[in-house]
Design a protein around this nucleic acid. Structure first.
Lengths: 212, 212
DNA sequence: ATGTAATATTTTGTATGCAGAATTCATAGT
DNA sequence: ACTATGAATTCTGCATACAAAATATTACAT
């Protein structure tokens, strides 16, 4: 077996993002370093390193002397984040390898259709959605851009658990994914980009009412 | 005197970015934590925190057991970064308060003209250019977006010192800034956005030949 | 009862210490 | 001379220790 050889700070960061997905930090936004470190079975040092990284990505806030807290959610910020990823993913798609898109399009369509048939747990849905977008952008060779997108999406996870247990967003998302894939199959990249932008705009609208 | 009340890690980060601007790390890309900490008069802990933050922003690379190094420059990455900021600033301009743009436009034009008259030190030029872009985007209320832009631009500082001592890029940049401002004065935001995109694309072309 | 000052406790921010990985250097063998 | 091997050194990654700031608690005065 290949033993874990990633720095602790990264493993911790992953774990925290995972918990964020589960909505573990819903109310209690303040973080107690000693307690959390003990819970994770690590020392404060790598934990703080992970927290600093997350703060840089906007998932956390830090205030001098007052430590870290999960950044509060707001409609305004969610709107802002959606606008950003929409622009970034559009750019990624724009600068993607056309051949790749042609090859990936059928698979994208298939996945999108599976998606709507198969109503699963929220966490599965999100993983599925992430994978779909990853596949969509797999033909983009701008690594910095892909990293950036990943980072911004990490910040959006704070919002994902709010949608828990409602299936209409899922259905609409699947439908939009189909539309994007169809445009790609038709070789209409501009149309696909426009559909992608719609996907984010609509995704935003869908969530908006659920945010305090 | 108002004493410094920011966390050390942030002061260190600023200092490192400053040195990056000066091109201090030109050749020696590897970082020795102990040595640098001693030089800055701090311990390794806040230094490492600053390094981790910078690594998150793409300014540094980190490899397990091998510490941090300044990410090597490459034409490819520079192209990627330019494409990203172009898209992000375009988005920022797109979502800016129209009234603000109307008010700021004359000032933007004036600054751009000063810019070309007055050939100063490279560091002044960069500050001036940064301020100009800040003013341009001052009407954008998407704070997350502005933060993101700041972060990506931080990563681009590794490239800025390469242009040292050549005035043609300056002149062309000033000219483009004028064009953007003129479009804003004319109330043609779409045109301004297009000109802004050009500014980045051309800026990229200008630098490209200087990068190894 | 309420507000405030003084003190105790908690918690963060920074420094130091230590184990293990990576690198360097020296030596031996081909 | 060149490579391989192994010891010595350097450096990172993580843990622990300490000091200062923030928060909670108590005591007291109004």
């Amino acid at each position: 077996m290949a033993i874990e050889r990633r720095p602790l700070r990264e493993q911790i960061r992953s774990e925290l993002l995972l918990r964020l997905d589960r909505g573990d930090f819903a109310g209690k936004t303040d973080i107690n370093e000693a307690a959390l470190a003990a819970e994770l079975g690590v020392s404060r040092t790598p934990l703080r390193e992970a927290l600093i990284r997350l703060a840089g990505e906007g998932v956390l806030e830090s205030k001098q002397g007052r430590g870290f807290r999960f950044a509060p959610v707001s409609r305004k910020e969610f709107r802002q984040l959606c606008a950003i990823v929409a622009a970034l993913e559009a750019l990624a798609l724009e600068s993607s390898d056309p051949e790749y898109l042609e090859r990936a399009a059928p698979e994208l369509l298939r996945l999108a259709q599976d998606f709507s048939d198969n109503i699963a747990e929220r966490q599965d849905i999100e993983r599925h959605d992430d994978e779909w977008h990853d596949l969509l952008l797999g033909g983009c060779h701008n690594e910095r851009l892909l990293d950036l997108i990943t980072g911004v999406k990490a910040g959006m996870r704070r919002y994902s658990h709010l949608v828990a247990g409602d299936s209409t967003p899922l259905e609409r998302a699947a439908e939009e994914h189909c539309r994007i894939a169809e445009r790609l199959i038709a070789g209409d990249r501009e149309g696909a980009i426009a559909a992608l932008r719609d996907n984010w705009v609509n995704g935003m609208e869908r969530m908006m009412s659920r945010i305090p």
